[in-house]
Design a protein around this nucleic acid. Structure first.
Lengths: 210, 210, 210, 210
DNA sequence: TATGAATGAGTTTTCATTCAT
DNA sequence: GATGAATGAAAACTCATTCAT
């Protein structure tokens, strides 16, 4: 027993993080338990002790993501609207909803890589993450649509467009080795759909700065 | 010798097509020579007789794609501009350039799947298709930029946006099992960037109909 | 500590019983510590705390069997003969000796399964139960031979035959999912070797009934 | 490629034989592909090339057995009876039917070991050979019953007894390391059920000798 | 009395590849 | 122009066992 026995919760997190990174590099199919275990400093069996199987490991990652993401975003929005008492969200909130997603991608490119790669791999109905990403896409589109209510002509369509823009720009950003400013490009792009975005952005920034 | 000895070129094409389909389903990592060979009605060795190795097979597919795609698009454009004698492309041509891509995706969803899946898998520098897709993205963005000259404020940026929109909408379309009209969604989306698109479309259609 | 800390002796018995059942199903090779531990509601390590190793667990089961079986049979017989003062056993005792074995199998089919399966698996010299079953077969044949003295021409041969019949019928009974009356079949079979068996049986029964 | 490429049919037979021997020693659960492959002078994969999986290997063995056994016995019997024109078999044939089985066991102890061990292991409904041995036992009992018609009071019962005797004696023989004469013991035992057996045996032998 | 993390060896199976025929 | 036997490496997973706590 060479491995200096770690706090199990810490170890779990360590594994999840390493797995997320590796899937971001090679996809789920390209991930090998052996490689992952080695990078975590344990044996094959030692790793599977935590998650039982490769697929369950994936599920664990996705669940973790779900917890830390969708829930939070949704909750934030609800609170804001409840507080305001109005039917629709403010322009600032709408913009922040979308920008928050991109901000996260910029600050955590490994997570972005993970999503970008796995999401495409999971286009196949038999992929273990297929259902997850299908469900999630429906949910995100729904959420976007709600958020956009009152701000565009056809909210569902705009939701599609924004989601497409985010995903598409992110992928270009990764392929270009993050050599352009994703945030700037997104801000420009969102202006196509929400023409008032630029003004709001400047106002918000001014507000923050002062 | 069960296999009724086929014309080698036909056989090659058959293999390439089957491989394209399978990569569209499982990615390059998920593709197995065994599976592919079986579906082509020949043995492992028989298949490798044609392509030497799995990676060379991938290269062959990509080369084939290159030939049948970029070349054609580019050539068409050049011809058009040369004929017109002007510096910029006509609105109709610009629109057709982008629509042609989407049209191809709609009419050949298996090719779309192949690109969608492989493009993401190839985000990794070590992936055998990494260089291909990097090169290609640069080229496409360049082409788009040129085409957009004189039609938008910042052509390079619009190129980015259009490419992102196409890729993003395509992926949504695949995940939704092609249950919405991709062409319509694209036409709506392109209007955000090229406000005159709708008019041109109607005119063109009228022209075609009459 | 989920397990409600049990009386260690009770726990030991619980483990032995579960192990007996599982070996009856999958043999010793097919038994896994993991499975056994789970069914006993404790962990791998917890189980091995009791028996040290898989092989020692098997030994423990066999010892337990030895204690509760051969010993008892043998003792009963000795008492009977000592009491009677004669050199040979009475017909009733002879018959009861063999019937007792079958009765046990009928009333405890899980034990029968255990013996049936393990006995065959242990035909291999390297099997951890090889010596046990070899010793035991010699002993049983010897016991049978002694018991049969004066009742058949060649007691050792009859012992062989009876042992074969019991084992063979038992296995048929198990394979047929206990769908015929093993006791009846045995009583009929034993009559081939001990022609007076039927009469004795009827007399004994009459005696019991009245 | 160290292995001097063998005639595939010969290789198949070699594998089947080695597998039969190993299963006779360790059972199906105790058989490992690795061990088997090594003894055949091939790698794991090389072996599985022939049979696909461990279970399919077992199936192949059982099918081979079926072909070379039941079929032959049955055919022989039918021919004999058809030739004689009578409803029942002759005493000599009846006896030969049973003796043939034992003879085979004596001359091919590895086959006997295989059957003895696997038959018990396969008492479990989930064992891959369960169905095979169930079907086979039903068939054998049926065959025996037919053969015994006209020669004993209750043919089905006698069939049971004979099958039990054969199986039981065989197992004793194996455990005793073949140190007694199984054929003799069987001939003595069958006399219990077919009292004329001894006479027939002597007559047959005399006939053969003269 | 156990648990629970971890090992090391081994399991079946898969895969890309090779090469004699 | 292919087949078909075989390899070698690696895949995911299992298992008996160990040992600090």
């Amino acid at each position: 027993m060479r491995q200096p026995r770690m706090d199990p919760e810490v170890r779990r997190q360590q594994i999840l993080e390493a797995a997320t990174r590796l899937i971001g590099l090679h996809g789920y199919n390209g991930l090998t338990i052996q490689d992952l275990a080695q990078r975590c400093g344990l044996t094959n069996g030692g790793l599977l002790y935590y998650f039982g199987s490769k697929e369950q490991l994936l599920v664990a990652i996705l669940e973790e993501r779900d917890r830390s993401e969708a829930a939070i975003i949704h909750a934030d929005l609800e609170i804001e609207r409840a507080a305001s008492g109005k039917a629709n969200y403010t322009r600032s909130t709408v913009l922040q909803t979308f920008r928050a997603i991109v901000t996260r991608s910029v600050t955590q490119p490994e997570l972005l890589r993970f999503h970008s790669v796995l999401r495409s791999e999971a286009l196949n109905r038999e992929h273990p993450a297929y259902a997850f990403f299908l469900r999630r896409e429906v949910m995100v589109l729904g959420e976007f649509t709600k958020v956009l209510a009152g701000h565009v002509d056809v909210p569902a369509r705009a939701a599609r467009q924004i989601l497409a823009l985010i995903g598409g720009l992110e992928q270009q950003w990764l392929r270009a080795d993050m050599s352009f400013d994703l945030m700037v490009e997104f801000d420009e792009a969102i202006t196509l759909i929400l023409p008032w975005a630029k003004t709001v952005l400047q106002t918000d920034k001014a507000f923050v700065t002062n």
